[in-house]
Nucleic acid binder design. Structure first.
Length: 558
RNA sequence: CGGGGCGUAGCGCAGCCUGGUGUAGCGCACCUGCCUUGGGAGCAGGGGGUCGGAGGUUCAAAUCCUCUCGCCCCGACCA
């Protein structure tokens, strides 16, 4: 491809609206343009990257026996009403009416549609298993589109769905996907982890996410280097650091105007880990007192699974219910439900005395108060693995893929049943698996860039090689460049030739920005000795080779 | 939806606080010519603006006030 004939609008300056590195570089290097919040146009270079990723997706999906189909983006409301999601999902679904006044929506995902299909077409265990997939546009009215292509309102997704006769079959389909995903992300040159995740509203019991570590990510994951435990922070378990059990006797301490753990900790010259933080919450079944150690944070989502929907109590409510203002609440002498963090059980602590300006020292859980014990703290850096006790790390990451075991959540309401060998009618056991190609592209850029631009891995680079004839007015340069272009292209190498009549500096800058992995630099001086340079974008290593050697060297780099 | 920031030429910005400096400015990009060709050159000339929009205050508004739209960031949300 000739640079001069391709629309590659590079930008010298950093666009004001971009913050994430991948966003800045995709805009600057001419891969995408933004139409509105969360809506992007893919320019020629950007599309080439997405298509290369899609090709890998298809190859690996086909390799596990998945079959490509394509489903509509516009859905009738009925199927969403049948699964209950028409009402469960709020503003995030784009809804509309057709001219006949029928309710419709734009597909955020395709469980409903594909289950509708399965319900109609699969009747016997003989039709199972099946894995169907598509690479299709999804629309979600995101509350906050952000970080360029990472979180958009319209995006492409590879979504596949498995249909099995039983749990064993589902496990097999799930594993096939996990393996395919490992291959896909490895081929795309991404550093990633597979982590345990919260199935959330998708339903089902088991779910994993594929996470590409990057500061631009929206998720946090905990990782254990020793045993490999890895989980989204939304459900990650951890053991807080051990503390020495004190031999304090039970006594009230005067703590005037000291309310927060930090204030009291400072006042009594004791580390925050010797405190019990008591937080009053209002659940649908009344007030609940949640307890975590002073150096830990309460995990709302974990607590949510135990006590259901809840909200923090307001100042007035605290006074009414406990009889003392927030800041002096302790776990003792309450009739209400108390949920304590498991790791609070051992030890002797300080907490509020339920009396203004007093705290109690020497509280022994189990003796001075009792509670239901669960892991309800947020795992953090410095905590220990609950499986092997090794130190845990916490990293930010971009979610690039996920796999869910759905079970019968969709097959039952949409009546996707089959007859088993015994002639018994049973619901199909389903799984759902997603990958966002745009997120792969963005994650790869986040992980592979330098001050000058993008550094693509060859597998998803828009081209394999860029030829830079430095002086287009020099006939010999042009002649050699065109010959190399023809030769390489003839051998199946994807080549971009910068045939613009621009100065060398501009060509170098643009080439670095765009990030094609190998550059062939043709300069007049070297050419006089019959030499051209092959430069590695990543290492910046340059080797001089004769014109004749180029094709061979490019094919076997290094 | 809560909090914050920003809308001035294609892009990046100054001017706004404290209204009036004459035709609203600068850099880059763009057009013409010359020159130049190994890291976003140089010289000369040139084109391009509803100052996001509406209303108001005023003799006078890019500047002050009200409303509104858009975009970004933090949080909430995220099937």
């Amino acid at each position: 491809m000739q640079f001069s004939k391709m629309f590659i609008p590079t930008l010298k300056e950093i666009p004001a609206d971009a913050e994430a590195i991948s966003h800045i570089l995709m805009l600057r290097a001419g891969y995408v343009r933004q139409l509105a919040a969360g809506l992007y146009i893919y320019l020629p270079l950007g599309l080439r990257v997405i298509e290369k990723i899609n090709k890998i997706l298809k190859e690996e999906m086909n390799a596990i026996g998945a079959q490509e189909i394509t489903m509509p983006v516009l859905h009738p409301a009925e199927i969403w009403q049948e699964t209950g999601r028409w009402d469960d999902i709020g503003d995030e679904m784009f809804r509309l009416k057709d001219r006949g006044g029928r309710d419709m929506c734009l597909g955020m995902t395709h469980e409903e549609v594909i289950t509708w299909l399965a319900a109609r077409e699969i009747r016997s265990y003989r039709n199972l298993p099946q894995i169907w997939y598509q690479i299709q546009t999804k629309l979600r009215d995101e509350a906050r589109p952000k970080s360029g292509v990472l979180r958009t309102r319209e995006f492409l997704m590879k979504d596949s769905y498995s249909f099995d006769a039983d749990e064993d079959g589902l496990e097999r389909s799930y594993q096939l996907h996990a393996e395919a995903y490992h291959k896909i992300f490895s081929r795309c040159g991404i550093k990633f982890y597979m982590v345990e995740s919260d199935p959330g509203m998708m339903g089902g019991a088991t779910a994993h996410e594929f996470m590409a570590p990057s500061p631009a990510g929206e998720d946090e994951i905990t990782l254990c280097d020793k045993c490999g435990y890895s989980a989204n922070i939304e459900l990650a378990c951890s053991i807080p650091k051990k503390i020495d059990v004190q031999d304090w006797t039970f006594e009230e301490v005067y703590t005037p105007e000291k309310r927060t753990v930090q204030e009291v900790s400072h006042f009594l010259k004791l580390g925050p880990e010797y405190f019990i933080k008591s937080i009053l919450l209002i659940s649908d079944d009344g007030p609940v007192l949640a307890l975590v150690r002073g150096d830990q944070e309460l995990h709302e989502k974990k607590l949510n699974r135990i006590i259901g929907k809840h909200r923090p109590a307001q100042k007035e409510e605290v006074k009414d219910i406990i009889g003392v203002e927030a800041g002096f609440i302790g776990p003792m002498n309450h009739k209400m439900r108390i949920v304590g963090d498991t790791y609070l059980k051992e030890g002797i602590y300080v907490s509020g005395a339920n009396k203004p300006h007093y705290h109690t020292k020497g509280i022994k859980p189990g003796k001075d108060f009792d509670a239901e014990w669960y892991d309800i703290h947020i795992a953090k850096e410095g905590d220990f693995c609950h499986k092997c006790n090794a130190p845990l790390g916490v990293e930010r990451a971009i979610e690039i893929g996920n796999i869910f075991k759905l079970g019968t959540k969709y097959s039952v309401p949409l009546k996707a049943f089959y007859l088993d060998k015994a002639g018994q009618e049973k619901p199909i056991i389903m799984g759902s698996y997603g990958i966002g190609p745009a997120r792969i592209a963005a994650a790869v850029i986040e992980q592979n860039n330098d001050k000058d631009g993008i550094i693509w891995p060859t597998s998803i680079a828009p081209f394999d090689v860029e030829i830079l004839p430095l002086n287009m007015k020099d006939t010999k340069t042009v002649e050699v460049a065109e010959k190399l272009y023809k030769d390489l292209t003839g051998e199946g190498v994807g080549v971009l030739i910068d045939d613009r009549d621009e100065r060398a500096g501009i060509k170098f800058k643009d080439a670095d920005l765009i990030g094609i992995p190998t550059h062939i630099i043709i300069g007049e001086k070297n050419l006089k000795e019959g030499l051209v340079e092959i430069k590695d974008r990543k290492t910046r290593d340059v080797v001089k080779v004769t014109v004749e050697e180029v094709a061979e060297k490019v094919k076997t780099p290094g």
